[in-house]
Amino acid sequence: MELRLEKFTKRFGEVTVIEDMDLTVESGEMMALLGPSGCGKSTTLFAICGIHKMSGGSLHFGDRNVTTMPAQQRSVGVVFQNYALYPHMTVEQNIGFPLKVQRVSKSEIREEVARLSDLVQIGNLLDRRPAQLSGGQQQRVALARAMIRKPDVLLLDEPLANLDAKLRLEMRSEIRRIQRETGITAILVTHDQVEAMSMCDRIALMKEGQIMQLAAPEEMYANPSSQFVAGFLGNPPISFLDAVAGERLDLGTGQSLARPFGLEATGDVVIGIRPEFFGPQHGTGLEGEVIFVEPQGREELIDVRLEGGGEIRSVLPAGEPVKPGERINWGVATDRILAFAKDGTRL
């Protein structure tokens, strides 16, 4: 079911956390709300599920206006960051709780619980209590509980934050699988870009209560709309250099780069170069000295101080014979250079 948030405003007392936010999540789509801590992701999520009242704007599930509807009647499933399982109930009772409060018959509840526990693969744990489950198992229970009512929308608030690295990887594909299988419209709140990029159809990147860019992950990575987006997305992160656009991109340090095709701006700009687009595989062009090499197993992270000032990062396959202190002259993939105005907007 399509979810439409229009001119959504949220104030806590005097403080306006979110102002005039528009967001549409297509039916069956999984949307990521990505952004740094405190940008208003959870606030948006709580407004959508009805726990917080909206200070302004409207919210539609399909053609149903649910703006003022209490949480109980909204038909949303929520997986909370700490799972919020009921400690005094068994797994079965936890999953069945949304149906129990709707006075669904016992046999029907049992059937539905069986269906959901199959879906999230915890059929053998139904008699346990939450305290007797591992983090990943709790996660699955929370997911099953959120989905048992066949809600219009599934909301996930940092669902993977409490899991260890391996489990996180596993649950990432697991949640995606379940979302695909059920075709449910979902919103994933996260501050982890890898999560957002790997799990979601589209990403809404937020900053200070505003959506900076809304796009598919690849699109957002390749074509960020602002310096903030470019800087937030990508790991290892992009390097920014000041430059003057003229004939060439003059770095003001005696070095310069070729103008990327299609760049029209002149004068002071900021250019962004992702680490994979700077390296010996791109020929020569920038001179500098290797100041730091960070092996990461499959690849190595290399920090370079440029001749005349400025730092730039490169990522190379592991095993490249690069040592700190070494002088290098590496090239840049010119057509992948991103240029921004001084105020951060994309040029």
Partner: peptide
């Protein structure tokens, strides 16, 4: 935990 109370609300409990 408040999240538990929130959870019960979105689960439909009055």
């Amino acid at each position: 935990p408040t999240s538990m109370l929130y959870a019960s609300e979105v689960d439909g409990a009055n």
